[in-house]
């Protein structure tokens, strides 16, 4: 026990250091304008009207709605399509499979910035470049990391269940939908929550595609709030902090309910080359 004491002491110190910015954020979001920089642990006076004020100043509710819609669409699209593709790689033998799967892994290393411009031009060419569709529709084709992750899950399922189903006359699609999918549920949840988080926190694509403030997702809206109420000139940082809390809290809740799936996803991240 005494051997563990210094470790715990160090962890408590680290824990305080890592929790402090959250505390500071929430506290600042409840301070009035003259106290927002005072670094006091507790706001005095408490100013909850920051939240109603930012609510009135910008279409925060619409942004939350957009983020939920885009996030869920992105997550569902990524989960379903990656599962289909992963099952193909895990379950069936076909010529070219190894090469193709190598290609999947290779695209994981591909810097996204390289396709940013041409993919925008594609959406521009089909007239959808200023809609929310480019924020999630790319996920309909399976994404490399999730294909890799779900393939691991499918490979872990016993082959006998599929053989038995085949004997009973189940075709490939039924083997996938009624046997593989239910058994790989934890993997599907990992993909869903990972992609939900990725879409919820993304800034660069909303910056590229969204023009109308009514279409903004929360990060894009928060950037607009920062530009206007932060360094932009009006200097109402307490409103920026309140909007930041609104953007962050859903992700904290998501983590608290799905913690083990996030940890599992991170741990499975490593690809053997």
């Amino acid at each position: 026990m005494t051997r563990r004491a210094p470790v715990l002491l160090a962890l408590v110190a680290v824990g305080v250091l890592f929790a402090y910015p959250f505390w500071w954020l929430v506290s600042a979001s409840l301070k009035d304008r003259s106290h927002v920089f005072d670094n006091a642990l507790l706001p005095a006076p408490v100013s909850p009207q920051n939240y109603t004020e930012v609510w009135r100043a910008v279409p925060l509710l619409a942004w939350v709605g957009n983020s939920v819609a885009v996030g869920v669409a992105a997550a569902v699209a990524a989960t379903v399509s990656s599962a289909v593709v992963a099952f193909g790689f895990a379950r069936f033998r076909f010529r070219g499979r190894t090469v193709l799967f190598g290609l999947v892994l290779a695209t994981m290393m591909l810097p996204a910035a390289v396709t940013m411009v041409p993919v925008y031009l594609e959406w521009h060419a089909v007239g959808l470049a200023t809609t929310q569709i480019p924020l999630w529709a790319g996920n309909l084709f399976g994404s490399a990391f999730y294909v890799f992750l779900l393939r691991q899950f499918f490979l872990g399922l016993p082959a006998e269940v599929f053989d038995a189903a085949r004997v009973d006359g189940a075709g490939p699609w039924r083997q996938f939908a009624s046997i593989a999918l239910p058994l790989a549920r934890p993997g599907l949840i990992v993909v869903f929550v990972f992609e939900l988080k990725a879409a919820w926190t993304d800034l660069i694509r909303p910056l590229i595609y969204l023009r109308e403030p009514e279409l903004y997702t929360l990060p894009r809206g928060l950037k607009a709030v920062l530009d206007r109420f932060g360094q932009g000139g009006e200097a109402q940082w307490e409103l920026v902090m309140a909007a930041s809390v609104v953007a962050t809290v859903p992700m904290i809740l998501l983590f608290l309910v799905a913690q083990r799936y996030f940890v599992r996803g991170v741990v499975t991240q490593r690809v053997e080359e």
Partner: peptide, 17 residues
């Protein structure tokens, strides 16, 4: 792990201060 859940825009706004 919790800080990794913070949207980078919120993180940046917070750390500016």
């Amino acid at each position: 792990f919790l800080p990794t859940m913070t949207p980078p825009v919120a993180l940046a706004a917070l750390f500016l201060l």
